[in-house]
Amino acid sequence: MQPRIPRQSAGEQDDRRPDGAGLDDRFTAELASAVSGARRRAVRDGDRHVDTAHLLHSLLESDADVRAVLGDGPRIARLLGYLVQRSIGYGLRWQSAVEESGAVPVVTGATGFSPLAEAAVDEARARASRRGTGRACGVDLLAALVADPQARAVEVLGRAAVEPGTVIAGVERYFEPAS
């Protein structure tokens, strides 16, 4: 019987990618911690891949800026409630399927990320690069998570009545220069 989560090489266990580019090189310390938390959550939940909902859950728990963009208070509580339920309720159907939208080719990479989660992580880094900063932050990843309407993170946000457009508007306000 094969393990549900692909085994990580020694380099990946400390959150290093096979190509040698560590998360520390691409992300702020806070975001690297959130991605590590998402990996632990996927293993704990018995999921095959880290998906966009794992990433969203970890961001909500660990990143105050992400919570501020989404609007602290009852909305965050609702979102966390739906995310916690994934292991006992609606998320069970996710365990037997790889998160993908068809727009991103399905590959079985060594990172253990679903294709959409991998694309979101890459897009977060690209967003930071376009802004002229070397490292992506949690708000960059939040924006990337809502980019594909097929993402599980978008489904969770929808269940909590949070529209992707509202998230993007909050992200844009977050990055607006203070005047």
Rank of each mutant, 00 (worst) to 15 (best):
G134W: 03
F175W: 13
A153G: 08
G109H: 08
V107K: 03
L83A: 00
A124C: 11
P164G: 05
A126N: 09
D122K: 08
A161K: 03
V139Y: 06
V98W: 04
A147N: 09
E155A: 15
A153R: 02
A128T: 06
P115M: 02
S129F: 09
G112I: 06
D122C: 03
G109T: 15
E100I: 02
V171Q: 01
A161V: 02
V162P: 09
G81E: 08
V156W: 05
A124R: 13
L142Y: 06
G112E: 09
L92M: 12
R152G: 12
A151S: 15
V146I: 15
T108W: 05
A117I: 01
E172P: 04
E118A: 10
L141V: 12
A110R: 07
Q95N: 14
A124E: 12
I168L: 13
L92R: 15
A103H: 06
L145A: 14
G81R: 04
G138E: 07
E155L: 14
W94Q: 14
V139G: 10
A126R: 14
A110D: 15
G158K: 02
T111G: 13
F113T: 09
E99L: 03
V84C: 01
V171R: 03
R75H: 06
V154R: 06
L116E: 10
G81D: 07
R86H: 02
E172H: 05
E163L: 06
L141F: 07
Q95S: 15
G165K: 05
S114C: 03
G158E: 12
R75A: 13
V154M: 05
A128H: 11
P149G: 09
A143R: 13
L116Y: 00
A161F: 02
L141D: 15
E172S: 11
D148S: 08
G102I: 03
A124M: 10
A161C: 01
G91N: 07
G132K: 04
G170P: 09
R86G: 07
T166F: 04
